[in-house]
Design a protein around this nucleic acid. Sequence first.
RNA 1: GCCGAUGUAGCUCAGUGGUAGAGCAGCGCACUCGUAAUGCGCAGGUCGUGAGUUCAAGUCUCAUCAUCGGCUCCA
Length: 634
Amino acid sequence: MIKITLKDGSVKEYPKGTPVIEITNDISRGLAKNALAAKLNGKKIDLQSPVNEDSTLEILTFDSEEGPDIYRHSTSHIMAQAVQHLFPGTKFGIGPAIADGFYYDFDAVENFSPDDLAKIEEEMAGIIRADLPFERLEVSRDEALKMFKKAGENYKVELINDLPEDAVISCYRQGDFVDLCAGPHVPSTGKIKSVKLMNLAGAYWRGSEKNKMLQRIYGTSFPKKSLLDEYIFRLEEAKKRDHRKLGAELDLFSVQDEGPGFPFFHPKGMILRNELENFWREEHKRSRYEEIRTPLILNRSLWEQSGHWDHYQENMYFTQIDDIDFAVKPMNCPGSILIYKSKLHSYRDLPIRLAELGLVHRHELSGTLHGLMRVRCFTQDDAHIFMLRSQVTEEIIGVIDLIDRFYKVFGFEYHVELSTKPEKAMGSDEIWDMAIDSLKKAMETRGMEYKINEGDGAFYGPKIDFHLRDCLGRTWQCGTIQLDFVMPEKFDLVYIGEDGQKHRPVMIHRVVFGSIERFIGILIEHFAGAFPIWLSPVQVKVLTVTDRGLEYAREIHDVMEQNGIRAEIDGRNEKIGYKIREAQLEKVPYMLVIGDREVDNKTAAVRKRGVGEKGNIGVSEFIEEVLEDIRLKR
RNA sequence: GCCGAUGUAGCUCAGUGGUAGAGCAGCGCACUCGUAAUGCGCAGGUCGUGAGUUCAAGUCUCAUCAUCGGCUCCA
């Protein structure tokens, strides 16, 4: 007999070699019905696996952390089987689970069409109905190679060859389909209930553009139709919030054929943008930054000196002036450095924090452009901090605090990631290690948790990235803090120390919004266009019931404008319901309805976005409330 | 850049080789109206662009541009 410790701490005894499924049945019928796989001593296994020693056992259902991945992974095998049935000769790439679903990459004889997805779904339904068991087969490396070579599965052969020496090579079979796979899988195809194939896309084998492009089918699956419906509903919600759609509807910005990746900001979008910049300037002044502005176009020699010529050329735009080569800036740092170098600095002056709302241009691949989120020119809310080595930790903490303050204003939560030395890097390992340690130290001092991204740093230094989470749970990289010992060296930056000698300062490059354009895109989607009042392009709309109210409406409109409130009058000859509907679609935070009653009592009937009618109120009282909301950025 | 799809009026879309359509928006007129769409009328398009096939092209072919979904890349 062996002892099995369950998740709740209870211990049960079973004969050695009892399959997990029997233990599960013994625990509870309900659990056995929902069980997908299990975790034995922390290792994920199939329900059919026998237990041979004293162990801790956790049964995984769809509701467990690992459940959905196992469920979707099994679904991807079913999809592959369906494709094999319908499109003989197709070779198979990989088919993992991803967040919210799965995909499988195929090298098919012919391209799939969107109509094929429906056919594949149908075939999958048949496989699911057949309730084929998933069988695990462990094979030797030679057997595996022989089997997949014979089948002409060259991608699988490549995968097997790349497996570590000591790896257990396993395959899973359901019916007539066998796939190389570590597992685990659900017990049988019948476990899969609601499947939807979402879309079709090209994807390079192993993610490298040097390799062949395979066809990827994305899909998802759920144990209940209601969960699938809910998921599809969420996707539709996200679509409704799409900043490209709302940006056009709310007349905030546009992207035109004449400028792919170069967004146009319309008057209302500019209000939003200027509010963000005003807030940014206030906060940076308070944190003792000085604002600068550097030119968009600078001489080639500068970019050679900074290393951008060698490390960033493929993303840069070039031009000539009087036969001399110039580049459009892809980053603001060299300009900022030139300002630092324009005079001699004492150690007493440091740290010097030079902030710049800098418009940068970067050549992005045409296929990647996306509204305001991925563009070819954008404004970084940049700053470069020149400081003593002894000031590094304190300055980094200062930036972390600043970023934290900003995101809280918008109600964003975030997590941070630390990126280390990339392949295309400048500077010695020693300098990099020192820089990475400084960033770690600052985060640890502040008690922050962080994830490490090996090899993901900028070419001149490691960085901390801030990923904020929007109301739909999606994450966006916005703020970054990059520590740089390399540029000061390249540009021979100095300050005069206490000893009267020249010393080398250290630099921080950092952004808070990241890109103002992208940040606006995120705000649009986060708030679904219903911005907090301090950002709303129109804060109050005054609606007249008849033109008898027009004069009084103008009066209160003027008072609001004098108080700095962005107000508009809708005095058109339309029914009040029509005007309300329109203002509602414009997502204006407050409407004031003006009819004969309001004119007579010198009040306004307030209608608040998301609340509805709030009753009548004196105009000055209303203005005070609105101003308070704006001031507190509610 | 690569794979796939799409491109018809300001917007959303219909139009399967034979005279370009609808709704909304716009403009005009009437209605002076109380919390999410008043009625009637008018105007609006070299069908993304360029070639080609055809007696005839929005519709078929090719090229090209842009957009969308991904890959890759990143703020």
